[in-house]
């Protein structure tokens, strides 16, 4: 790799760290990233008396890894999409274009930032579940390794989708409006809060075609006892299959996203940013 790309790579990493620091010191960001999981942790505590049908495992213990999967998927899809739309509107992306190798720095920075934030939320969930939930087994290094690869592969599988959405939808406010409903639908069939094995078969097929089910499955495999396999779709953790499906989503996603991203980046200009500023101002 040549010197400019190395420099941009390093700058990208430091950019990711700086933005991570900004996130940790911003109330708004902390609320956005940790607010949802806090609500779910509280609900889990209230529900702690209830077991999953036919087992003695509290339903809340199944929710925790489900939440971790959900966090990964939300980061990859919603955070990537809304960040991209915001960065297009306020000129961050254009600034990156104006600097030599700035786009490399920008993309690496985003990847590092989002991966760090996602990992932090997952880590908080693990700690909270271990401290607060009865019988939640935080597992050992092998389980955490599973969490790590599911997290990274899960982000790689979903981030291209988020990037495509963020490239095609020009207003950051519209991004959420467009994505939230389909996201909720996917969440509903993907066995995050309710075992997918109990859903009608056609829904199970939809779930298994999408990344979220496999990310959730990977997370559950790390933290739930094998007695719970009875409620999974094929009564097995199927980690190799999870890796395969997520990799396929990542590869196809990148192939589709790269030309769309290129086209979007090419069209960024000051006039577009100015138009975005006017739109944002009209909104008040």
């Amino acid at each position: 790799m040549n010197a400019p790309s190395m420099t941009a790579l390093r700058a990208g990493f430091s950019r990711g760290l700086i933005e991570y620091r900004h996130t940790l010191s911003s109330k708004g960001d902390l609320f956005a990233h940790f607010g949802t999981i806090t609500v779910f942790i509280v609900v889990s505590l209230i529900m702690s008396g209830q077991d999953i049908d036919g087992t003695d495992v509290p339903i809340a213990n199944m929710w925790m890894p489900g939440l971790m999967g959900l966090t990964v998927c939300m980061s990859g899809l919603l955070t990537v999409a809304s960040t991209l739309a915001t960065d297009r509107e306020d000129g961050t992306l254009l600034r990156a274009k104006a600097v030599p190798d700035g786009m490399i720095g920008y993309l690496i920075g985003k990847a590092v930032h989002i991966a760090l934030v996602t990992a932090s939320v997952v880590a908080v969930l693990i700690v909270a579940a271990t401290l607060l939930l009865d019988g939640f087994d935080p597992g050992g290094p092998a389980d955490w390794a599973t969490v790590a690869w599911v997290l990274v592969l899960g982000l790689l599988a979903t981030a291209p989708l988020g990037a495509i959405a963020g490239s095609l939808i020009s207003s950051p406010r519209a991004v959420m409006a467009v994505l939230v409903l389909p996201f909720m639908a996917v969440m509903g069939v993907s066995g995050i809060f309710y075992q997918a094995g109990a859903l009608p078969e056609w829904m199970q097929w939809i779930a298994q075609a999408l990344p979220l089910y496999w990310i959730g499955l990977g997370m559950r495999s790390a933290f739930l006892p094998d007695t719970l396999l009875a409620v999974e779709i094929t009564e097995s953790w199927r980690l190799d299959q999870a890796a395969l499906v997520l990799t396929a989503w990542a590869v196809v996603g990148f192939l589709v996203a790269v030309p769309i991203l290129r086209r979007m980046a090419r069209r960024e200009s000051g006039a577009r940013v100015e138009a975005g500023r006017r739109r944002a101002m009209q909104r008040g």
Binding site: P4, T7, A8, R10, A11, S14, R15, I18, H22, S26, D87, D90, G91, T92, L94, R95, A98, V99, P100, D101, G102, G105, G270, V273, E274, R277
Partner: peptide, 22 residues
């Protein structure tokens, strides 16, 4: 450029040094 509102949360020196590095 004419209109720029980017990097609002960065500090002045932080952003200038970061971009200088490229």
């Amino acid at each position: 450029m004419q209109s720029w509102r980017d990097h609002g949360r960065w500090r002045v020196e932080e952003l200038l040094s970061h971009l200088a590095g490229f």
